[in-house]
Simulated assay, not measured.
Amino acid sequence: MKFLAISGSARAQSTNTALLRAVADIAGPKHEVSVFADLAALPVFSPDLEASPLPLSVSLFVEAIRASDAVLVSSPEYVRAIPGGLKNAIDWLVSRDEIIAKPIALLHASHRGDDMLGQLRLVLSTVSAQFYPDLFLRFELMKATPAQVNDHMQGPEARQAVLTFLNAIEERAIAS
Rank of each mutant, 00 (worst) to 15 (best):
A27D: 09
L56W: 06
L163H: 09
Q13P: 10
H31I: 07
P47Q: 10
A161G: 09
A81I: 02
D48H: 09
E50T: 09
V44D: 03
L163E: 09
L107Y: 06
A105V: 07
M153Y: 13
H152Y: 15
L163P: 04
M116T: 01
A12N: 12
A67N: 15
A41P: 03
T145V: 15
A5P: 07
S7D: 03
V44E: 02
L106T: 04
A67Y: 06
Q160G: 06
A105Q: 05
P43H: 01
P55E: 03
R66H: 12
L20R: 04
G28E: 11
H111W: 13
S110R: 08
P76H: 00
L56C: 03
A40I: 10
N167P: 08
K143V: 10
K143C: 13
D91Q: 01
S68I: 07
L163D: 07
P103G: 08
A12I: 15
E171M: 14
L39P: 03
G85T: 00
K143D: 11
L49H: 05
E32P: 05
A158H: 09
E32D: 08
I100G: 07
G85H: 00
I6G: 02
A64S: 15
E77T: 01
A24D: 09
S125Q: 12
A24M: 10
G155Q: 14
Y132C: 06
L106H: 01
Q119S: 05
L93I: 02
E140M: 08
Q160D: 10
Q160E: 14
P103E: 09
L166I: 06
I174M: 10
H108R: 07
A40W: 05
L4I: 11
P47L: 04
R11W: 05
L4A: 08
E157N: 12
S14M: 02
V33L: 09
D151W: 12
S57Q: 04
P76L: 02
S176M: 15
E140A: 10
P47W: 04
E77F: 00
V23Y: 08
L166G: 06
R138M: 05
V73W: 03
D48G: 07
D114H: 14
P83C: 01
V94Q: 12
E77G: 02
V44C: 05
L122Q: 10
A10I: 15
